[in-house]
């Protein structure tokens, strides 16, 4: 009997180890590929690869760089973060503070739907509402489409993080006569590390978001049927990194494909940095 249990334990142990090993190998292979191909332009051209524009001339051996793409990514994500983080945080405070109100329960359900919905839909909404009307592809519209991703995520997480605090902390503040605002300030202070870590993760989430940007930037059609695929590129719009990766993957020009890998490396590096900050913060959360 004991032998049978031991054999079963051993089999289970081998199975989970193999599964974990496979996943780890897959991740390492992916990261290794990104690092290997992405570092080619940096090795060849140094820091210029992170500053210059992509070189679209087929005759020139120079790669150029992804500078303007990094810049446009930072502008779009920056605008989104600037509007989205306070909006999401304040919505989260409302959900936490008024859990039983009708508005709160409706808002919570809607936000949960937004978190789960395909993000490409948000791009379509913004494109049909603003881009077609104004006939301009502004970075602000791209940021607006990302708001649909960052706000629900931050709001729900803020509410859930505050709900994990001991209820006695809130009761203590209220029993002392602190106002609702001051009470929320104390609670946010108690959970600040988790709240900031959650915000970092949300920024990483929008950083890698492609779907809505593809539509808002209105490049899908250009990429699929335009000169990007079948002809050498003559100029590249300063699109975000994610959109460039998509375009580069379809490009006939090898060096643009390699620059796509570099864009991947830059994005992965940014997301990795944010996750490290989040990890360090959550590891040091004090237990009340």
């Amino acid at each position: 009997m004991v032998r049978k249990y031991r054999a079963r334990d051993l089999a289970l142990g081998i199975l989970v180890s193999v599964a974990s090993g496979l996943i780890l190998a897959l991740v390492l292979w992916m990261l290794g590929s990104i690092f290997y191909y992405g570092s080619i332009p940096i090795i060849r051209e140094g820091l210029k690869a992170l500053i210059a524009s992509p070189n679209t001339s087929p005759e020139s051996p120079q790669y150029g760089g992804v500078g303007p793409l990094i810049y446009s990514t930072l502008i779009i994500v920056g605008a989104c973060v600037l509007i989205g983080l306070p909006l999401g945080f304040l919505t989260g405070l409302y959900l936490y503070e008024y859990p039983t109100s009708r508005l709160s329960s409706i808002a919570r359900r809607l936000l949960e739907v937004l978190v789960e919905a395909p993000t490409v839909c948000y791009g379509l909404v913004i494109y049909l509402t603003f881009v077609l009307a104004i006939k301009e592809k502004l970075a602000l519209f791209a940021a607006l489409s990302l708001l649909f991703i960052i706000v629900p995520y931050v709001a729900i997480q803020t509410c859930d993080i505050l709900s994990t605090l001991p209820p006695e902390l809130k009761e203590t503040c209220i029993s002392l006569g602190l106002s609702r605002w001051k009470t929320l300030k104390v609670l946010s202070r108690a959970a600040w590390r988790a709240l900031v870590a959650n915000m970092m993760i949300s920024v990483a989430k929008v950083l890698g978001e492609t779907g809505p940007l593809l539509i808002v930037a209105h490049v899908t059609v250009d990429i699929a049927w335009g000169p990007w695929v079948y002809h050498p590129l003559t100029s590249i719009e300063p699109v975000p990194l994610t959109v460039f990766i998509y375009a580069a993957a379809l490009s006939a020009l090898h060096k643009i494909v390699i620059l796509g890998w570099l864009a991947c490396l830059v994005l992965t590096g940014m997301a990795f940095g944010l996750f490290i900050i989040a990890r360090v913060l959550t590891r040091t959360i004090e237990i009340l």
Partner: peptide, 8 residues
């Protein structure tokens, strides 16, 4: 309150 709580 019953449970000792320190403000953070």
């Amino acid at each position: 309150l019953q449970r000792p709580i320190a403000l953070p």
